[in-house]
């Protein structure tokens, strides 16, 4: 899995820094933007941001590492699906968002997963299935079990959230961070097969570039 060290290790502490790109995938108006907006600003849309909300960054200072999230929102309309692979190039995590009150969005999420599986190996990307809009529980069309079962069979993280009532939004992103960091550790303990894409400071400082030849 690719990770980019952008912040660098500070001289005081050995705490590593990671930058993770997270893409939001899902049908139109399932609440992708709201989810990200809620997470970044801990605020729902009723309070309007200054510019559009489709690109967000969030820096997390965790015990073991500093993590910078870069959240890319994508257009959910079906007609753009054919070009959306450009969005998730080099992504570290993907959120497959569906609306629990709309069965169709759930099947679309499954289609997105198929797309992702074409482009990534299972250990290259963390995928989370997210059932949004739990505040609309009365109109629920997709049961929690349905989502859970599907996620389990495909090895995805699963969570039901509500961006509107701020239900489990933070937990969702924390779960993703934990999973990303866990994989990071796992990879450090055994030599990575994807050495090329790993940007490691120590390794690259000894690499030779064309201009030195």
């Amino acid at each position: 899995m690719a990770q980019t060290v952008t912040l660098g290790t500070s001289p005081e502490g050995p705490r590593p820094s990671y930058m993770y790109k997270v893409v939001l995938l899902g049908s139109m108006s399932v609440g992708k933007s709201s989810l990200a907006y809620r997470y970044v600003k801990s605020d729902f849309r009723e309070l309007l941001p200054t510019v559009g909300c489709s690109f967000f960054t969030q820096i997390l200072n965790l015990e073991e590492a500093t993590v910078k999230f870069e959240i890319w929102d994508t257009a959910g309309q079906e007609k753009y699906q054919s070009v959306c692979h450009l969005y998730y190039r080099d992504a570290h995590a993907a959120l497959l968002v569906y609306d629990i009150a709309n069965k169709q969005t759930f099947s679309r999420a499954k289609l997105w997963l198929e797309e992702l599986e074409k482009k990534f190996l299972p250990d290259e990307i963390v995928i989370a299935l997210v059932g949004n809009k739990t505040d609309l529980a009365a109109e629920r069309e997709v049961t929690t079990e349905e989502g859970e079962d599907f996620a389990r069979t495909k090895g995805l993280l699963f969570m039901e959230t509500s961006a509107k009532s701020n239900h489990q939004v933070n937990d969702l992103f924390m779960a993703i961070v934990q999973e990303l960091l866990r994989r990071e550790k796992e990879k450090a303990s055994k030599p990575s097969p994807h050495g090329k894409v790993t940007v490691d400071l120590r390794a690259s400082s000894t690499s030779t570039g064309c201009c030195r030849s």
């Binding site: 108006s29 992708k32 933007s33 309007l48 559009g52 909300c53 489709s54 929102d73 257009a75 309309q77």
Partner: peptide, 23 residues
Amino acid sequence: SKHIFNAIKITKNEPASADDFLP
């Protein structure tokens, strides 16, 4: 892109998401 976001925001009176932006 910033100008596009502004245009959408003025029209819709709410911030644009990627669903609006790409079209």
